[in-house]
């Protein structure tokens, strides 16, 4: 055990010496995996923008497994990197490895998801988008576009998932400020085009062809794209008869925005290296207490921009 510690220590010393010689900052980044469209784009952006900040990025893909991720973080500690960025696979089970990083004087930054640890000082801060803010932004746009009077149908994400819960909460927080805005029907479309289409088909029947409905709010673009198809097949004009607002800003929704079939989409940024690296490098230069959560601002796109 002690031999291991000594070995790790000496490796750390040599590595940090080597790093200081090279001049570049060495950062270890443990990514969840490469599922979906957004995460690979996020990984690629982190790798691409590393050069701009003179960062030597050590990238580790955990393939969705926490044990893989713990191994990667311990390897970063042994290598003596200057800082560690973790996009956690799960929220629990982090106390031990974060303590090890703290003992080795390596600051840890969280991106994307959160962790639950007893001692919040084990990590410097979390830098991520805020699902709740995305919901609020969609709600604020809709309140302005409908002048505060709107009956809304909502396509929820996968029941119980963090983005579904927070986007709903944020959206409701805004529309609750307007007495004439209300959600009249809400169902889960499981974040898929297929799900969004099925749910919208049912809404069209249960609301007599969306009679009196002024907007559709979808927790992601894929569901909204399905809803657009369902409405077109029922002879409705999405974007004109009904305001369409959703979250993600995927390529297909850009086309829909251009065609006027969708009205607004809140962007879930994958190009976040430009937000993350400055925070990390600034902290390394001048270590000080940071807020436990630094929110990356969201952006809302319409047909015009």
């Amino acid at each position: 055990m002690s031999l291991k510690t000594i070995l790790a220590g000496s490796v750390f010393a040599m590595a940090s010496f080597a790093a200081s010689m090279a001049g570049a900052t060495t950062i270890g980044f443990s990514q969840v995996g490469s599922e979906g469209d957004w995460r690979p784009a996020f990984s690629k952006n982190m790798q691409d923008t590393a050069k701009d900040y003179d960062v030597d990025l050590k990238f580790a893909d955990a393939q969705g497994k926490q044990e893989e991720q713990l191994r990667a973080v311990r390897a970063f500690i042994a290598q003596g990197v200057d800082a560690i960025i973790i996009a956690p696979v799960v929220v629990t089970g982090w106390d031990d490895v974060l303590q090890e990083a703290k003992d080795a004087d390596i600051p840890v930054f969280l991106v994307d998801r959160d962790v639950e640890v007893k001692d919040k000082s084990l990590y410097v801060t979390r830098i991520s988008a805020d699902f709740n803010l995305e919901g609020r932004l969609a709600g604020a746009w809709l309140a302005a576009a409908s002048k505060g009077t709107c009956k809304i149908v909502e396509l929820q994400g996968t029941t119980g998932s963090a983005p579904a819960i927070e986007r709903k909460k944020g959206f409701e927080a805004i529309i609750s400020q307007f007495p004439a805005m209300e959600i009249v029907a809400t169902q889960s479309g499981d974040f898929t085009t297929e799900g969004g289409k099925k749910v919208m088909e049912a809404f069209i029947k249960s609301t007599n062809n969306l009679d009196g409905i002024c907007a559709s709010f979808a927790h992601n673009d894929n569901m909204q794209l399905g809803a657009i198809q369902a409405m077109k097949e029922a002879g409705l004009k999405p974007g004109q008869d009904v305001l369409m607002v959703s979250v993600d800003y995927v390529p297909a929704i850009k086309d829909a925005l251009a065609k006027g079939e969708a009205n607004a989409s809140v962007e879930l940024r994958s190009a976040v290296g430009g937000f993350i690296y400055p925070v990390v490098l600034d902290y390394l230069k001048n270590p000080h207490e940071l807020d436990k959560w630094i929110v990356i601002p969201s952006d809302l796109h319409t047909a015009k921009d």
């Binding site: 898929t192 085009t193 794209l225």
Partner: peptide, 16 residues
């Protein structure tokens, strides 16, 4: 039928 229905290929979630 399912793929043409949604006008897109979504291998992760189609017909889950």
């Amino acid at each position: 039928i399912l793929t043409a229905d949604t006008h897109t290929s979504d291998p992760v979630s189609v017909a889950l």
